[in-house]
Design a protein around this nucleic acid. Structure first.
Lengths: 210, 210, 210, 210
DNA sequence: GATGAATGAGGATTCATTCAT
DNA sequence: AATGAATGAATCCTCATTCAT
């Protein structure tokens, strides 16, 4: 399960190409060429193209979906601070691993065919339950409204964030930001997303129904 | 630009398969077999696989992104009723054309290579501007808060709705609804989404900042 | 065996395309498009693509390889004048039917597969024997040398003339005549060829061996 | 640019089939079957059918159009001996590479579409200029007539020789030589062609105009 | 451990032809 | 008489994978 330098290089190259062109739209030749390695090495290291896909998921889910617990269990934060941290964390992860997130979005079916279904399911479930825990805590402490559908809130956060990534190109074009350097643009996006989701959650969690 | 019965059948079959398996993951053979037609007919009718993809977009965007104006311009509705109608309409369209929406989500790159880029851009822009119009109207009438980022609200609506569709399988499994018939499940989802987004928008648009 | 206007149009279009791109390199669609007729008409009129090829040969050989006898049997001409007429006639025919001649040159195998083998054989044989007749007449009258290989002379005439047509493009480029209008260029070529072959034949037929 | 054994085998097989059936009339399957190799190997080695055609030309022109200079520059030969050697050399090359010569004759257009145009042009030009050099030398030494159109003489040589190859089948049939073994037949043809062209050139180059 | 050569399977597309009208 | 729709066969090419080295 530990990948050497070359294997990691292959994984990351493949991830990028799969995200851009899809699993079937990317050939092993493409990956080998982009990564500067021999074509046969992919089958050699991973067994097959499918197994490489599995490796990507295993690699990312392991290194990506961890360490959320630390935030949740830090007692120095108020419930809403925890929510904020949670949002920040998700956004940071997503921007830091855009390719992988785009890949997950575009190849949902891939789960069914390969041995990653459970992995992904567990990661999502884990995420959801952490969020529930935070919000329930806030409710118990009387700081959040009672009748909040936590599942829907999480979907809103993830959906909005994901769509943000997906729709970047439209956004750029619509707002005449095509010339802005990618790094700056991402910074802008990220900040905007932070603010929006925090405001949204605050509004939902603390707004009194009339 | 008018497609006969057989052409529509091909378009809809291809749309489904492209949505499930991707453009490159779907062979012309697959489409022909599923649609019960001869393999050569696809090239015969559409010229190529790529042109078929273009036809799908042209077909759907034309028939899907219309008639939203009627809602917006109906003076019998209050601004918030218009927002509700807008949300309903988007959700209905999306559930009614799940395949196409999933296809758009998974193949964003396809726009760049083919002649659908502008089509999609215009549709999205049109959508966004209609939403802006409604909300600005509510603001002018003092019924909505002033400092609402309309763009972000739309992204939230679309992102949440899209994610809802994408994540169905996880949702089913997580909530032990795997046995529920698809039709009933969708009804359930749709209702839930209606409610959630309306509540969300109400909260955002009318909640007074403290 | 009599072709109507449309059939002739198809034949001539096909002849041109076959000459330029070869039999297999030309599709029925190409011919139909170029001739401005329906695709099905070719099979309808001629039965098949192969039969169309046969029709071209039948059509051209009939109308092309005739009337040579008149020259030969005209008693007002001296033997060498007859040779000159013969040369002129061949060159004129060839320039007037360049496409057909190029077609014959590039598709010699086609004879074996189709029913035109005998047709072509007879035409060639007829040509050769007419030439022999003229030259033998000149020899009998003591005006031509005795030991002339008539077959080789004919091959020289035909080969040179054919090569002239084939190598036009090289000739143009080599002599900086790329800008010259095709009509003028052909006139130039034809004149040159007349003169060359006549001189050649005169030299061969009348030159006394030392 | 150096081809291994298998590549050469493919090139020579393809050359033969292209010469007989044309570029478009020959399928990759045909070539693979005749050469006893896997179909995919052709694309593997050459990239495409077109590139294979280019390879044939590159291969032949390189190995075929060389070493003529040696003859020309050999000072032991008289000008007419050089002409004879030149003729012999051309005929030998042509009979030794009949397929390639037939291929060049039947696919002149192929030059325009592919990267061999210049290659062929240079080879032809080179050939022509060597011939000119020889004849001009003879003229300078007063052994050849002054007013000889060297270009036309070369065309005569090449055209006659080429036509000889093209028309073999007719010749055989006409002269009842269908039963003669090919090797013996070729020997006969070659000898005949030697003699004819040498006589022809002698007559033209040395015959005094009256 | 690492790789270049080789291949069978399957990809999209074009083809000449047929048939109902 | 003439044609648009439709199709099975064949086209070239790319694919992921294997194997001897």
């Amino acid at each position: 399960m530990d990948y050497n330098e070359k294997q990691v290089q292959i994984i990351e190259t493949a991830e990028k190409l799969f995200a851009n062109n899809g699993f079937e739209g990317t050939s092993i030749r493409d990956i080998a060429q982009e990564a500067g390695i021999n074509i046969a090495m992919i089958s050699y290291y991973f067994g097959s193209k499918e197994k490489l896909m599995e490796a990507i998921f295993a690699y990312r889910i392991k290194t990506t979906f961890l360490k959320m617990e630390n935030i949740i269990n830090n007692d120095n934060y108020t419930p809403f601070q925890k929510v904020e941290k949670f949002i920040e964390h998700y956004i940071d992860k997503m921007f830091g691993n855009q390719c992988f997130y785009r890949l997950m979005m575009r190849e949902p079916y891939i789960q069914e065919f390969h041995n990653i279904s459970d992995l992904v399911y567990e990661a999502k479930k884990n995420n959801l339950e952490l969020a529930k825990k935070v919000i329930h805590e806030g409710q118990k402490r009387g700081e959040f409204r009672k009748n909040v559908d936590v599942g829907m809130m999480i979907m809103t956060m993830i959906g909005t964030a994901n769509h943000f990534v997906t729709t970047q190109e439209f956004y750029k074009r619509y707002n005449n930001m095509l010339e802005m350097p990618q790094v700056e643009f991402e910074k802008h996006m990220r900040k905007k997303l932070y603010h929006h989701l925090k405001t949204l959650f605050k509004s939902i969690l603390t707004h009194e129904e009339k």
